[in-house]
């Protein structure tokens, strides 16, 4: 059974229909990259997967649970879905280590000692062990985003969502973040990545979804989607970004 199943997902903001009829299925350990022009609904799609946006219509089933069911405890569902934002959204009043350990301590009631140890391991993994006691304001963009990834990983998520994780970064810092994501993919994390990094999508993605105008216009393995796009809109988008 797929870990994420989306059927007939629709999302409107007021009268503006942003997602028109989204159907997608994502398997465990799969890395799915979502590409498409700005305003096509990529972020909204991603944010519907952990219900940061209210879902207007359709079904989103995460690990067998329909999250559109109002009776479901969405906090519980979110604990297993990590999310990384374009603008990092680190908590500026907490140290790097506190950022990473907050959710395990408060949400999973893990002891402080255990969370700190796990937190340090994760910071080591993203190469920022020595920044544990710094504040986010003292970090570069690339470092911030790596902390944000460590923070999400601290909850042991089953799925990781990335919304343009490198778009706010100076070019020289993009690599360090993509490297961490690549490692995560190799370890078998299920990942949905909205990105403009076509190189990453091609190299790390198992599948690429091309979105335009609130629809998934085309999806395929990267080699096919990039090498042999079927739809005119895909072709025209790729000709602009490649």
């Amino acid at each position: 059974m797929s870990i994420i199943q989306v059927s007939n997902l629709k999302k409107s903001f007021g009268t503006l229909e942003v997602l028109k009829d989204i159907n997608a299925e994502i398997q465990e350990k799969e890395v799915v990259c979502v590409i498409g022009p700005s305003g096509s609904g990529k972020s909204t799609f991603l944010r519907c997967l952990n219900k940061l946006e209210d879902i207007t219509d359709g079904q989103v089933i995460i690990r067998g649970q329909d999250i559109t069911d109002p009776k479901i405890n969405i906090n519980k569902v979110r604990q297993d879905i990590g999310m990384v934002f374009q603008s990092f959204n680190l908590f500026p009043h907490m140290t790097v280590l506190e950022n990473v350990t907050l959710a395990p301590i408060k949400v999973r009631s893990v002891s402080k000692a255990v969370s700190n140890e796990k937190g340090m391991e994760l910071l080591a993994k993203v190469g920022l062990k020595e920044k544990a006691n710094s504040y986010p304001g003292e970090l570069s963009g690339g470092q911030k985003q790596r902390v944000a990834i460590a923070r999400a990983l601290a909850m042991n998520p089953k799925i990781m969502l990335f919304d343009e994780p490198t778009s706010a970064l100076d070019p020289e810092m993009v690599g360090e973040v993509l490297e961490v994501m690549k490692q995560l993919a190799q370890e078998g994390m299920t990942m949905v990545v909205v990105t403009h990094e076509m190189g990453f999508a091609r190299e790390v993605g198992d599948r690429v979804l091309f979105m335009d105008g609130g629809y998934i216009v085309e999806e395929n393995v990267p080699s096919e989607l990039f090498g042999n796009p079927q739809h005119d809109r895909t072709k025209s988008f790729l000709s602009k970004v490649l």
């Binding site: 940061l52 604990q79 603008s87 009043h93 907050l102 408060k106």
Partner: peptide, 30 residues
Amino acid sequence: IDKGQTEAARSLGLTGSQNMRFIVLPQAVR
């Protein structure tokens, strides 16, 4: 306080009141 703070907190599984208490209010108070 930037909405992104709340989104990050909620995406980690914090409840609305935990978000208020640990993320939004401490920053707002300053």
